[in-house]
Design a binder for these strands. Structure first.
Lengths: 120, 120
DNA sequence: CAGTATCCTTTATGATACTG
DNA sequence: CAGTATCATAAAGGATACTG
Protein backbone atom coordinates (compact mmCIF):
# COMPACT_ATOMS: atom_id res chain seq x y z
CA UNK A 1 0.00 0.00 0.00
CA UNK A 2 1.39 3.41 -0.93
CA UNK A 3 0.61 6.32 1.25
CA UNK A 4 0.24 9.39 -0.92
CA UNK A 5 2.49 12.11 0.44
CA UNK A 6 0.62 15.09 1.80
CA UNK A 7 2.51 18.30 1.18
CA UNK A 8 0.41 20.09 3.73
CA UNK A 9 1.76 18.14 6.68
CA UNK A 10 4.80 19.69 8.25
CA UNK A 11 7.40 16.99 8.07
CA UNK A 12 6.32 15.59 4.73
CA UNK A 13 9.33 14.97 2.57
CA UNK A 14 7.61 16.61 -0.36
CA UNK A 15 7.67 19.83 1.51
CA UNK A 16 11.38 19.49 1.99
CA UNK A 17 11.65 19.52 -1.77
CA UNK A 18 9.25 22.41 -2.15
CA UNK A 19 11.27 24.44 0.29
CA UNK A 20 14.31 24.21 -1.90
CA UNK A 21 12.59 24.33 -5.19
CA UNK A 22 10.59 27.38 -4.22
CA UNK A 23 13.78 29.41 -4.22
CA UNK A 24 14.28 32.24 -6.62
CA UNK A 25 18.00 31.79 -7.04
CA UNK A 26 17.62 28.09 -7.68
CA UNK A 27 15.04 28.76 -10.36
CA UNK A 28 17.34 31.23 -12.07
CA UNK A 29 20.43 29.04 -11.82
CA UNK A 30 18.71 25.98 -13.18
CA UNK A 31 17.40 28.11 -16.00
CA UNK A 32 20.91 29.08 -17.01
CA UNK A 33 22.21 25.53 -16.80
CA UNK A 34 19.39 24.24 -18.93
CA UNK A 35 21.22 24.17 -22.22
CA UNK A 36 24.88 23.84 -21.31
CA UNK A 37 27.36 23.69 -18.44
CA UNK A 38 28.26 27.08 -17.01
CA UNK A 39 31.20 28.17 -14.91
CA UNK A 40 30.99 29.77 -11.51
CA UNK A 41 31.92 33.33 -12.34
CA UNK A 42 29.86 33.20 -15.47
CA UNK A 43 26.81 32.46 -13.38
CA UNK A 44 27.76 35.24 -11.06
CA UNK A 45 27.91 37.74 -13.88
CA UNK A 46 24.75 36.53 -15.54
CA UNK A 47 22.53 36.58 -12.51
CA UNK A 48 22.40 40.21 -11.64
CA UNK A 49 22.28 40.88 -7.96
CA UNK A 50 23.40 37.52 -6.68
CA UNK A 51 26.27 37.61 -4.23
CA UNK A 52 29.14 35.19 -4.32
CA UNK A 53 27.93 33.76 -1.06
CA UNK A 54 24.41 33.08 -2.24
CA UNK A 55 25.61 31.60 -5.50
CA UNK A 56 28.02 29.30 -3.76
CA UNK A 57 25.46 28.32 -1.18
CA UNK A 58 22.65 27.72 -3.64
CA UNK A 59 24.90 25.66 -5.89
CA UNK A 60 25.87 23.55 -2.93
CA UNK A 61 22.25 22.93 -2.03
CA UNK A 62 21.44 22.03 -5.60
CA UNK A 63 24.30 19.56 -5.63
CA UNK A 64 23.18 18.05 -2.39
CA UNK A 65 19.71 17.55 -3.80
CA UNK A 66 21.19 15.81 -6.79
CA UNK A 67 20.00 18.43 -9.26
CA UNK A 68 23.34 19.90 -10.24
CA UNK A 69 26.70 18.34 -10.97
CA UNK A 70 30.01 20.03 -10.29
CA UNK A 71 32.99 19.19 -12.47
CA UNK A 72 36.48 20.53 -11.85
CA UNK A 73 39.18 20.51 -14.52
CA UNK A 74 42.80 20.48 -13.37
CA UNK A 75 43.84 23.61 -15.19
CA UNK A 76 45.72 26.44 -13.55
CA UNK A 77 43.84 28.11 -12.16
CA UNK A 78 41.15 25.50 -11.77
CA UNK A 79 38.15 25.52 -14.08
CA UNK A 80 34.82 24.46 -12.63
CA UNK A 81 31.70 23.70 -14.58
CA UNK A 82 28.22 23.27 -13.24
CA UNK A 83 25.68 21.27 -15.17
CA UNK A 84 22.35 19.63 -14.69
CA UNK A 85 22.13 16.02 -13.60
CA UNK A 86 19.52 13.80 -15.24
CA UNK A 87 17.32 14.47 -12.23
CA UNK A 88 17.89 18.19 -12.64
CA UNK A 89 16.83 17.97 -16.25
CA UNK A 90 13.47 16.56 -15.25
CA UNK A 91 12.82 19.83 -13.45
CA UNK A 92 13.59 22.18 -16.26
CA UNK A 93 10.27 21.82 -17.97
CA UNK A 94 8.41 22.75 -14.82
CA UNK A 95 10.65 25.69 -14.17
CA UNK A 96 10.38 26.87 -17.73
CA UNK A 97 6.65 26.93 -17.25
CA UNK A 98 7.12 29.01 -14.13
CA UNK A 99 9.36 31.51 -15.86
CA UNK A 100 7.01 31.60 -18.81
CA UNK A 101 4.07 32.32 -16.57
CA UNK A 102 5.95 35.16 -14.94
CA UNK A 103 6.83 36.64 -18.29
CA UNK A 104 3.38 36.48 -19.76
CA UNK A 105 1.48 37.64 -16.69
CA UNK A 106 3.79 40.24 -15.25
CA UNK A 107 1.69 43.05 -16.63
CA UNK A 108 -1.47 41.80 -15.01
CA UNK A 109 0.30 41.36 -11.69
CA UNK A 110 1.78 44.83 -11.76
CA UNK A 111 -1.62 46.28 -12.66
CA UNK A 112 -3.22 44.41 -9.76
CA UNK A 113 -0.58 45.70 -7.41
CA UNK A 114 -1.18 49.24 -8.51
CA UNK A 115 -4.90 48.90 -7.97
CA UNK A 116 -4.35 47.38 -4.55
CA UNK A 117 -1.95 50.08 -3.47
CA UNK A 118 -4.19 52.87 -4.68
CA UNK A 119 -7.15 51.46 -2.82
CA UNK A 120 -5.12 51.64 0.37
CA UNK B 1 9.03 46.43 -30.79
CA UNK B 2 8.73 44.24 -27.74
CA UNK B 3 11.71 43.90 -25.51
CA UNK B 4 11.75 40.39 -24.10
CA UNK B 5 11.99 40.60 -20.32
CA UNK B 6 15.20 39.19 -18.93
CA UNK B 7 14.63 37.52 -15.58
CA UNK B 8 18.32 37.60 -14.84
CA UNK B 9 18.52 41.35 -14.58
CA UNK B 10 17.92 42.69 -11.12
CA UNK B 11 15.02 45.05 -11.53
CA UNK B 12 13.24 43.08 -14.19
CA UNK B 13 9.56 42.92 -13.36
CA UNK B 14 9.52 39.23 -14.08
CA UNK B 15 11.77 38.70 -11.16
CA UNK B 16 9.35 40.54 -8.94
CA UNK B 17 6.82 37.91 -9.85
CA UNK B 18 9.29 35.10 -9.35
CA UNK B 19 10.10 36.37 -5.91
CA UNK B 20 6.54 35.98 -4.82
CA UNK B 21 5.72 32.91 -6.75
CA UNK B 22 8.79 31.12 -5.50
CA UNK B 23 7.31 31.05 -2.02
CA UNK B 24 6.46 27.82 -0.35
CA UNK B 25 3.44 29.10 1.55
CA UNK B 26 2.01 30.65 -1.57
CA UNK B 27 2.38 27.39 -3.46
CA UNK B 28 0.59 25.52 -0.72
CA UNK B 29 -2.19 28.07 -0.31
CA UNK B 30 -2.92 28.27 -4.00
CA UNK B 31 -3.02 24.49 -4.07
CA UNK B 32 -5.74 24.43 -1.46
CA UNK B 33 -7.76 27.13 -3.18
CA UNK B 34 -7.61 25.37 -6.49
CA UNK B 35 -10.96 23.65 -6.33
CA UNK B 36 -13.04 25.80 -4.02
CA UNK B 37 -13.04 28.84 -1.75
CA UNK B 38 -11.58 28.21 1.67
CA UNK B 39 -11.95 30.11 4.92
CA UNK B 40 -9.10 31.59 6.90
CA UNK B 41 -9.01 29.22 9.82
CA UNK B 42 -9.57 26.28 7.57
CA UNK B 43 -6.40 27.17 5.71
CA UNK B 44 -4.64 27.55 9.00
CA UNK B 45 -5.62 24.09 10.10
CA UNK B 46 -4.89 22.47 6.78
CA UNK B 47 -1.42 23.86 6.29
CA UNK B 48 0.49 22.31 9.10
CA UNK B 49 3.14 24.55 10.56
CA UNK B 50 1.96 27.88 9.17
CA UNK B 51 1.54 30.62 11.71
CA UNK B 52 -1.39 32.99 11.75
CA UNK B 53 0.96 35.76 10.89
CA UNK B 54 2.45 34.09 7.85
CA UNK B 55 -0.95 32.99 6.59
CA UNK B 56 -2.37 36.46 6.93
CA UNK B 57 0.66 38.02 5.34
CA UNK B 58 0.89 35.59 2.45
CA UNK B 59 -2.80 35.96 1.71
CA UNK B 60 -2.40 39.70 1.63
CA UNK B 61 0.48 39.43 -0.82
CA UNK B 62 -1.50 37.08 -3.02
CA UNK B 63 -4.38 39.52 -3.04
CA UNK B 64 -2.10 42.38 -3.90
CA UNK B 65 -0.74 40.41 -6.83
CA UNK B 66 -4.26 39.78 -8.01
CA UNK B 67 -4.05 36.04 -7.58
CA UNK B 68 -6.47 35.63 -4.70
CA UNK B 69 -9.82 37.21 -3.95
CA UNK B 70 -11.11 37.86 -0.43
CA UNK B 71 -14.85 37.82 0.17
CA UNK B 72 -16.43 38.72 3.50
CA UNK B 73 -19.98 37.73 4.39
CA UNK B 74 -21.81 39.84 6.97
CA UNK B 75 -22.55 37.05 9.39
CA UNK B 76 -21.82 37.25 13.10
CA UNK B 77 -19.04 36.61 13.52
CA UNK B 78 -17.86 37.49 10.07
CA UNK B 79 -17.19 34.75 7.56
CA UNK B 80 -14.34 35.24 5.10
CA UNK B 81 -13.66 33.17 2.05
CA UNK B 82 -10.53 33.17 -0.04
CA UNK B 83 -10.69 32.05 -3.63
CA UNK B 84 -8.64 32.21 -6.79
CA UNK B 85 -9.08 35.04 -9.24
CA UNK B 86 -9.06 34.24 -12.95
CA UNK B 87 -5.41 35.25 -12.96
CA UNK B 88 -4.77 32.96 -10.02
CA UNK B 89 -6.34 30.08 -11.88
CA UNK B 90 -3.88 30.46 -14.71
CA UNK B 91 -1.15 29.63 -12.23
CA UNK B 92 -2.61 26.45 -10.84
CA UNK B 93 -1.48 24.25 -13.66
CA UNK B 94 2.11 25.34 -13.25
CA UNK B 95 1.99 24.89 -9.52
CA UNK B 96 0.39 21.51 -9.82
CA UNK B 97 3.29 20.49 -11.98
CA UNK B 98 5.65 21.70 -9.29
CA UNK B 99 3.90 19.76 -6.56
CA UNK B 100 3.72 16.74 -8.79
CA UNK B 101 7.42 16.92 -9.48
CA UNK B 102 8.14 17.08 -5.78
CA UNK B 103 5.97 14.08 -5.08
CA UNK B 104 7.39 11.91 -7.79
CA UNK B 105 11.04 12.80 -7.25
CA UNK B 106 11.24 13.12 -3.51
CA UNK B 107 12.82 9.70 -3.18
CA UNK B 108 15.61 10.52 -5.57
CA UNK B 109 16.28 13.81 -3.86
CA UNK B 110 16.43 12.22 -0.43
CA UNK B 111 18.76 9.54 -1.73
CA UNK B 112 21.01 12.18 -3.28
CA UNK B 113 21.10 14.08 -0.02
CA UNK B 114 22.08 10.98 1.87
CA UNK B 115 24.92 10.28 -0.53
CA UNK B 116 26.09 13.85 -0.31
CA UNK B 117 26.06 13.89 3.46
CA UNK B 118 27.85 10.60 3.74
CA UNK B 119 30.58 11.72 1.40
CA UNK B 120 31.23 14.64 3.70
C1' DC C 1 39.28 31.22 -11.19
C1' DA C 2 36.61 29.45 -7.67
C1' DG C 3 35.80 29.58 -3.84
C1' DT C 4 35.90 30.06 2.18
C1' DA C 5 35.63 32.56 6.45
C1' DT C 6 34.07 36.23 9.19
C1' DC C 7 31.49 39.93 10.71
C1' DC C 8 27.55 42.55 10.66
C1' DT C 9 22.96 44.22 9.21
C1' DT C 10 18.52 43.33 7.62
C1' DT C 11 14.60 40.54 7.05
C1' DA C 12 11.72 36.84 8.14
C1' DT C 13 9.22 34.41 11.25
C1' DG C 14 7.37 32.78 15.74
C1' DA C 15 4.91 33.55 20.13
C1' DT C 16 1.79 35.96 22.59
C1' DA C 17 -1.81 39.00 23.57
C1' DC C 18 -5.61 41.58 22.06
C1' DT C 19 -10.02 43.20 19.01
C1' DG C 20 -14.39 43.89 16.06
C1' DC D 1 -14.12 33.85 13.23
C1' DA D 2 -10.69 36.51 11.31
C1' DG D 3 -7.72 38.96 12.03
C1' DT D 4 -3.95 43.06 14.05
C1' DA D 5 -0.10 44.64 17.06
C1' DT D 6 4.00 43.99 19.50
C1' DC D 7 8.04 41.95 20.95
C1' DA D 8 11.77 38.82 20.56
C1' DT D 9 14.71 35.78 18.01
C1' DA D 10 16.37 33.17 14.36
C1' DA D 11 17.62 33.01 9.81
C1' DA D 12 19.04 35.15 5.51
C1' DG D 13 21.88 37.92 3.18
C1' DG D 14 25.64 41.42 2.00
C1' DA D 15 30.46 43.25 2.30
C1' DT D 16 34.93 42.40 2.87
C1' DA D 17 39.09 39.99 3.14
C1' DC D 18 41.60 36.01 2.29
C1' DT D 19 43.29 31.26 -0.16
C1' DG D 20 44.68 27.10 -3.18
Amino acid sequence: MMKAPNPYSAKCATRVVLDRVADKWAVLILGLLKDRPVRFNRLRRDIEGISQKMLSQTLKNLQRDGLVQRTAYPTVPVTVEYSLTPLGKTLTETFDALRRWAETHIDEVVAAQRRYDEAA
